[in-house]
Design a protein around this nucleic acid. Sequence first.
DNA 1: TGAAGTATCCGAAACGTTTCCGGTAACGGC
DNA 2: GCCGTTACCGGAAACGTTTCGGATACTTCA
Lengths: 338, 338
Amino acid sequence: MTPTIKDIAKAAEVSVTTVSRALNGYTDVNEETKKKILRIADELKYSPNIAARSLIVKKTKTLGLLLSGITRSSIKDNIAFEILCGMNDRSGELDYDLVLFNTTSQKQRMKSYKSLCLERGVDGVIIMGIRLDDPYLQEIVQSSIPCVLIDIPLAEKNVGSVSTDNVSGAYQATEHLIRGGHKHIGFINGHAQAYVSIKRLEGYRLALLDHDIEYREEFIADGSFSENGGYESAIMLATKHPEITALFCASDLMAIGAIQGLKNIGKTVPENVSIVGFDNIAISGYCSPTLTTIHQNKYDMGYRAAQMLVDMLEGRQVHPHLTLPAELVERQSVRILS
Amino acid sequence: MTPTIKDIAKAAEVSVTTVSRALNGYTDVNEETKKKILRIADELKYSPNIAARSLIVKKTKTLGLLLSGITRSSIKDNIAFEILCGMNDRSGELDYDLVLFNTTSQKQRMKSYKSLCLERGVDGVIIMGIRLDDPYLQEIVQSSIPCVLIDIPLAEKNVGSVSTDNVSGAYQATEHLIRGGHKHIGFINGHAQAYVSIKRLEGYRLALLDHDIEYREEFIADGSFSENGGYESAIMLATKHPEITALFCASDLMAIGAIQGLKNIGKTVPENVSIVGFDNIAISGYCSPTLTTIHQNKYDMGYRAAQMLVDMLEGRQVHPHLTLPAELVERQSVRILS
DNA sequence: TGAAGTATCCGAAACGTTTCCGGTAACGGC
DNA sequence: GCCGTTACCGGAAACGTTTCGGATACTTCA
């Protein structure tokens, strides 16, 4: 058996109360006895039982993670991973542990969001990759469990959000193309149930507007954020509208698919059509041609999300919505016309 | 307050004992009362308190993860991520949750491995990315906590391991180069404190031996598994030994660095020197030239590791060492000499 | 000398479960 | 009418902590 506080008490010839107080750094315990207790605890290799502890103070020092991106299909665009790294680093610094919730399995999917959190006894939750039409989202809003959402700004008590400035990012991407002399610019978006898609579309339209270019619905396609979606959308757009000389893609993965798609119908990037992506995933710096894209600081998103959540948990004032800057990184996939 | 078993008992006019038994599917409770209890539990939105529960049955249904690869530096080679995906999927299916241990922070680093696990009350642990000279490794061996190691086969009670067949992988890589007509083959390895490095060196030597090619110590360099390490090692090897026409790199990231390094001194891949990597990370299929490499089924490693651990936990017989096959995937980075 | 203050400690309850041990009632067989 | 069996249920202890409300003894000051 592993030693308990009781064993220490016995060995030190004091009460469990005193041991508890000594261990938790209370003042009203004699320096001598405190030293003794600490020494004995060390000798016995005592380590506290978190379950018992959290049974009475209702805190567990753990954050729950509801990440839909931790799955086989999202290995290439390891956005979830980068965000996870940031969260992991910051929560470690703040002395919180992270628990991954399994939302994939059927069994778990039945459970309500709230009971999921309650059972595990997490203090708060970070959620990402959730669709706007996901029933969980409703629950989250209603439940009083503190949480921060990645990429969905919800105005509710106890919920915060962090995201990249998507409209600025999309604006920069589109404007970059326009400045390059492009007038017919297609847009491969994600899907309608993603908040970022809505925002990126907004940025795209705004840029067109500001430069007096007509917005044309038929220049838009949804690529569902997948490589294959980008592939097919690019082919579709390029064949239906051969006047298009540039494509803005709402994700790098779709951009990479688009490059392949275009190649497949005999068009090369950037000679025939220019492309700018979004995300700045690792691959985009290595593929051919390397991808001009909008950089999202994914690591930072995770880092700041963790920070915000524990700020909320520990009663500090927080600004509930954090938007990180997006930044254009120029590489080889766009051609500057004359 | 969230409802407890006591509230249900009161509402159903039975004892807490009966409620507990009904909820846990014991047989000796009347169908009628059972139904009633279940209904009431549902109405009250009851969800059990795991802390209280695990206080008495000493199981938590959580697995601890000690992953050194979850950090900012390892974003490009997202090997840890793929493994994590596999673990996450399988543990979800088996109804276990995952908790990420923070081994990075100083505070945590002081804690012993055992107390780390004890405190969190995890049932078992999966460990990866640990160096052979890490003091934790000693502790792990000694502690009786069930664990499975990724890429380190330790023959101890309660510890299992899963890894790729590294010697076979390295053998295939080297042989592929030899079959391609290369006779002077350099090897950029990781570092001496990695088990996989030892094995990959073994495979490299074996292949040379089998094909009557002299093993030359000076053809070997350590690139510490980093892109930059590969870059510098490649330059070093190629300038010191211009007769080298092929390089086997113990990781794709180093291989990619090597390609850059070679380019920097005016050599192109594969025209001047051929390269084969190891891992088959996402980038290797997109970089230029695309990388011939040894495929590791990272997802599967995680999947099987989770499987093995819960097999151990639930008392099933397991074979403690699992080796997954490595597979050559041919792409553009090696040139077949006439 | 006595009262008030201070430093140090302790007993017991509480947290939400599970489980051991036992009890009651009904029923069938002899 | 008694006994053994079966079906169902409850009391209470236990798990390892924290915390509330004192209690004791020693010091200090008037």
